[in-house]
Simulated scan of single mutants.
Amino acid sequence: MFGRPRAWARRHPVLIDSFTVSPLVLFCLATVGNFSEAQWLAGTRVGMPAGLFLTIALLAPLMVRRNHPREVFAAIALLSFGQWVAGLAEIPANLAVLVAMYAVAARCTAAWAVAAGLVTEVGLALAQSRYTAFEPSTFASMSVFVVAIWVTGIYANTRRRFVESLVERAERAERERDQQAQIAAAAERTRIARELHDVVAHNVSVMVVQADGAGYAIDSDPEQARRAVQAISATGRTALAEMRRLVGVLRQEGDHTQEYAPQPGVAQLGDLVKQVGDSGLPIDFTVSGVPHVLPEGEQLVIYRIVQEALTNTLKHGGPGARALVDMTYGRGEVMLRISDDGRGAAAIASEGGHGLVGMRERAAMYGGSIDAGPKAGGGFQVLARIPTGVTV
């Protein structure tokens, strides 16, 4: 209910501080005209503009006391001390010292709060000794008022820190809960993946056996071959149904729009380069050699390697970096070179992420290799070699 107003207040601290101190400002400005010239200065005649200027100078810093409590208190205290040294009489705007002291007690450490309280007490003693006869009872009663404001600030500081600790604990508990849920979901997906492997392996084995039997019996016993083919068909449908069921569970929640989208391949590299380029990374994309048909699995590996390399450049290359993607079709292999001239070499090496490991694993599936590291003259380079026509 109060979340949005509190968020707005945190984004506009100056407006909130100005609003909370506005009654004091109005009171002080309204009483400026009630003081005679003799009250503004003891022994020297000073006109009304000096009193108005002093009032504004004491109150203006309060508008930023939330973000700069110590600086605001120091400025107001020094200005009040200068007022005392010059012999200027007390004015209602001197109450700004108490407001600034409260801000320090409510937002700074205990040491700064104690220091602000002591400075205020010293100022109170100086003011009483200059403008009235110093009486211990009067000083004690006024000190009680000052201490009450100081204690209120300490309480507000303690309560604010307590609430912040509760919010932090709640956020940490929520993050831990989400992490536990993700771990449990990952474990369940791993179990389902193993189950999917078992289902596919079993059904494919049955289909292979039935196909072999049909091949042997197709001439000597056509009826048995027909039954074997029917068994192959039924087993295939069962395997497909099981795969759809299990893969549907493995899909991420909310990813229904891409449920039947084909996996990206070499034909989508241009779209990938354009997408990353639109994110702020200039890319030169070249294809050389004689293109030939690649299996979908190898096309996916090539696409993911380029995607991961460009993502690393986008994250770690720094401002002004450029990238080059060169794809070369060779005899029985495809060569990839993804390089940049940024400053990402040190960042990638120090973070210890899993991007390079994932690229190497994908390339190794088809007997390929990845060579990644800093480039001479600066930047980072990924060289990939993917043999073509490899069956896994």
Rank of each mutant, 00 (worst) to 15 (best):
Q268K: 12
S220N: 08
A228V: 02
G236H: 09
T44H: 06
V209L: 07
I183P: 05
A125Q: 09
M142V: 02
Q299I: 05
V147E: 12
V229N: 00
G248T: 06
G377F: 15
A376M: 00
Q128P: 00
F35M: 09
M142P: 04
S143I: 11
L78C: 15
E333I: 09
P92C: 00
A111L: 06
V287S: 00
C108Q: 03
M142G: 05
A75R: 12
K315I: 12
A211N: 14
A140E: 03
V325I: 11
L166S: 07
M1Y: 05
R45M: 10
H202A: 07
N203G: 14
L26N: 06
R159I: 15
A156I: 04
A156N: 05
L79T: 11
M1A: 15
P5D: 08
Q258K: 09
G289F: 00
M101C: 12
V392L: 05
A181Q: 06
R160A: 14
V199A: 07
R4A: 14
V25A: 01
F81A: 14
G379S: 07
R6N: 10
Q179Y: 11
N312W: 09
A74K: 01
A77Q: 10
S36E: 08
G373H: 06
I56V: 12
G248F: 04
H354Y: 14
V276E: 04
A181F: 08
L15V: 12
A103E: 11
R337K: 13
H68K: 11
R304G: 08
Q299E: 14
T238I: 01
V163S: 00
V147P: 00
R245T: 11
P69S: 09
A184S: 10
M365N: 11
E171W: 13
R331C: 05
A7S: 01
T190Q: 13
V167I: 13
V390F: 07
E223G: 05
A103H: 12
S143E: 15
E135A: 09
I302G: 10
F53S: 05
A148T: 10
M243D: 10
D178P: 00
L29M: 12
D341K: 06
L26T: 10
L166W: 02
L78W: 12
A363M: 05
L15S: 03
G248N: 05
C28E: 01
A74H: 05
A321S: 14
A127S: 13
A267D: 14
N94F: 15
A214K: 08
G82L: 13
I91A: 13
